[in-house]
Write a protein that binds this DNA or RNA. Structure first.
Lengths: 339, 339
DNA sequence: TTGAAAGCGCTAACAG
DNA sequence: CTGTTAGCGCTTTCAA
């Protein structure tokens, strides 16, 4: 029923190969012929079938993106970075949320491979042997994004989470805080563990040990975190933290509010540092000091790297670590000598 | 190089038709044969080529989603609703951001049709004749989601934006406010216009006219809105609004902060109502009263509707209007008799 | 229950 | 510069 390349060829009085050439912008077509074919394409409303093309050419111009949850601000922003670069290179994007569920991840990877994606971007999960095996039999390049792979077996684009946490905690410790709390989503997640490692390291380097009660593990939602922090702040003053490092901005905001609810002031009584520097960091009062994770760039750089692998271009590094920094705002006290 | 259905057939000593039947779960295969084939599939690590299948069967199990911006909280949440239902019906999703740019939208629609998507979900834009023409030649079902189409020509899933705005503004007016401001993103966007219509209607119904200076059009970002509101609040008291209806939660939060910056109190001096009831509404103090737009459900229902069209199942209504309501929180004063 | 064979719509040598 | 001819890997009649 739909118009095919064959219909166009017949009507234009040329072979389908010529039509194919016109469609694909081959220079080897006489201008007059091209014009004629183009006219017929217009008349017939011909629209090339990308599936057939994909089968014949073995190029689908599609890449697969697997992420924990597209509705999370963090991954949505990352996805946008991926999309923009993909677009620039004429790739379309197949997106699926995995809920960081291993089985779902594996099944999604399989499904994308069946669809003959030309590359896979895998975000924010944890790799085990099954993942590795699948990726290795894939025959298409894979880039991990914002994903912890201790083995560094696959190409990846990320920030140094451990170091970022280390920097944030060091900043707080160096201001003289005796008790810096760490508010985090469950520590079984690899990204949470990386931050925890940085927290521990910053303490250790100063001859301090982790005080169990200052590490607050909670579900990564505002309401839950608020309650968890309320409990911590109800402690007597000599056990209560005077600074809080939170693993996300959402957790940090919960911390800020818990402090205020306890009748204390941010930043005068308690300083708070968040993570990710999402839009919301600037939309609360006091505005949040936050570790900047360049989400859009992570996505963009990863996608660019993937195109290089697909085109077999040389790449400088398979493990790209993007810089992080701390954006200082009002949830911490002004730094001496800061602009 | 990769294993094909033919390789499996040969090795299993059956025809490729039989292998195809096994893959597709056809009941017309002797159990012993099925088992043998399955074993070979396993041994060879055979993975069906979905592109070839799509070409042969004319079914790609792919649907196309076009939205203004995947990094926006609103659309990301909507996308998640779409995804979950799509998944349930074994569809994969091709997502693209259009930036609400007409040309981009048209080109994306074309590209998705070339890819033989089995249906299209079009979110949050404005339809003109070019869109309509494309959709009509598409031969695949289209569902508009959270999209204003005055002509109601295509199936759609949405809330009654005009009515929702009307309800919010009526609520404020009925509390005795003389001056209710409307803080909105640019009014050329159809969704913004719909809310504006509700604002006007609520006023008109009470014999009031729109006061130009109370309609504040701004870019839909916190910083810009904050400035715009500051200007408005700098007005002498008799021109200053005592209530603000904002077109999004982000704008509403800017309004709250502008009021506070002006040395006034929310809700005592100025009441503020937001829109969408995104997560952030509960993450600011005072917590935001907001019009609930069920984003996840909009996506889920739309996707479900699309599957019905694809399967040619009967549908009850082509214009699904989901209910909205107002979630009352602390940015408005307590209602008399409210729980 | 199984197999043979004809496409699906296009690309990509190859020949001219 | 253009046409011919094989496929790409699978589904789907139609027979057997």
């Amino acid at each position: 029923m739909p118009v095919t390349i064959y219909d166009v060829a017949k009507r234009a009085g040329v072979s389908m190969a010529t039509v194919s050439r016109v469609i694909n912008g081959s220079p080897n077509v006489r201008p007059a012929t091209r014009k004629k074919v183009l006219k017929v394409i217009e008349e017939l409303g011909y629209r090339p079938n990308a599936v057939a093309r994909g089968l014949a050419s073995r190029r689908t111009t599609t890449i697969g993106v697997i992420l924990p949850d597209i509705s999370s601000v963090f991954f949505a922003e990352l996805a946008r970075g991926i999309e923009d670069i993909a677009n620039m290179y004429d790739y379309d994007i197949l997106i699926s949320s995995s809920d960081a569920n291993r089985e779902k991840e594996l099944s999604l990877i399989g499904s994308m491979l069946e669809r003959q994606v030309e590359g896979i971007l895998f975000l924010g999960g944890h790799l085990d042997d099954a993942h590795r095996r699948l990726f290795k039999t894939a025959n298409v390049p894979v880039v991990l994004v914002a994903t912890e792979d201790p083995e560094r077996e696959f190409a990846s684009v990320r920030i140094d989470l451990r170091r970022a946490a280390y920097d944030a905690v060091s900043f707080l410790l160096d201001r003289g805080h005796e008790r810096v709390a760490f508010l985090t989503d469950p520590l079984h997640a690899p990204m949470a563990r990386a931050r925890y490692a940085g927290y521990v390291e910053a303490l250790a380097e100063r001859g301090r040990r982790v005080e169990e009660h200052l590490v607050v593990e909670t579900h990564p939602y505002y309401e839950r975190a608020l309650k968890a922090m309320a409990t911590l702040l109800a402690l007597p003053e000599e056990k209560r933290p005077t600074a809080i490092f939170a693993a996300s901005d959402e957790l940090a905001i919960a911390a800020v509010h818990a402090v205020q609810d306890a009748g204390l002031s941010v930043p005068d009584d308690v300083e708070v540092v968040g993570f990710d520097n999402t839009r919301i960091a600037q939309m609360v009062r006091p505005m949040l000091t936050s570790v900047v994770q360049p989400m859009y760039d992570l996505g963009a750089v990863a996608m660019r790297l993937l195109t290089k692998f697909i085109r077999q271009e040389p790449v400088e590094s398979r493990d790209v670590v993007l810089p992080h920094r701390i954006e200082f705002r009002a949830s911490t006290r002004p730094r001496v000598g800061a602009p």
